[in-house]
């Protein structure tokens, strides 16, 4: 019984997945359509806009772990304080006062998660930052924005993209075109096949550079 149900659901999933991809005949541009997440109330209404737009602070200045590990992490509070202890002009504003309350008590701020993936997926920030920021020299805000939306226009962050697997693939297909053996493109649903086997061009170059194995992300 269990097996049948599982099989039926898998089949349904497959059908809906393939039909929805068949509908996307044209690939989306780099920044995909928004799929807004819930509005999340944070303990301190952190103004990303003030920092990233008005001040022009590089995302990686605070989210420094993003280029070093799997997770971007939330900056340690000492990072906030490092600057703000010297910025007298805003020292008495409600949000900064609250920040210093936490700091004085040496208590971590209980931020709420905005971007989360299921536990069976591992997304690696480091690889993406290394490739787009350090190898291709693209502007940081564009690179981060591809997945996180236009954060410089937000106060507290809100999830902008769906972050589901199909959404990941929408980029990976476009940027790393997958072709079947013999050089024949097999459409937008090609990753089902290509994940098992990257195609090799006549001149020996491997065409599919995206994750070619389930275990690239599911491990």
């Amino acid at each position: 019984m269990y097996r049948f149900i599982r099989f039926a659901i898998l089949l349904m999933g497959l059908l809906s997945a393939s039909s929805s991809f068949a509908a996307d005949a044209h690939l989306e541009p780099l920044t995909t359509a928004d799929d807004l997440g819930p509005v999340v109330e944070q303990p301190i209404e952190f103004p990303h806009n003030r920092h990233a737009k008005d001040m022009g602070i590089n995302c990686i200045y605070c989210h420094t772990y993003s280029r070093r590990g799997n997770v971007a992490g939330i900056p340690p509070m000492q990072k906030c304080i490092g600057c703000h202890q010297n910025i007298e002009s805003v020292r008495e504003t409600p949000r900064i006062k609250k920040l210093f309350e936490y700091w004085d008590a040496k208590k971590a701020i209980p931020w709420k998660k905005v971007h989360d993936l299921p536990d069976f997926v591992r997304f690696n920030h480091e690889r993406h930052i290394k490739r787009f920021v350090f190898q291709q020299n693209r502007p940081v805000q564009e690179v981060c924005g591809a997945c996180h939306g236009d954060v410089k226009e937000m106060t507290v962050a809100r999830r902008q993209k769906s972050l589901a697997m199909g959404w990941c693939m929408s980029c990976h297909e476009k940027e790393h075109v997958v072709v079947a053996q013999g050089g024949m493109p097999i459409g937008t649903a090609a990753y089902w096949y290509a994940m098992k086997k990257p195609a090799v061009k006549a001149d020996g170059t491997v065409v599919a550079k995206g994750p070619n194995d389930c275990s690239s992300c599911h491990y």
Partner: peptide, 17 residues
């Protein structure tokens, strides 16, 4: 995706790292 905790789960950062 029942394990996704957008807006519910807390992500605690270091005070000093």
């Amino acid at each position: 995706n029942t394990s996704v905790q957008d807006g519910k789960e807390t992500v605690v950062s270091y005070v000093e790292a």
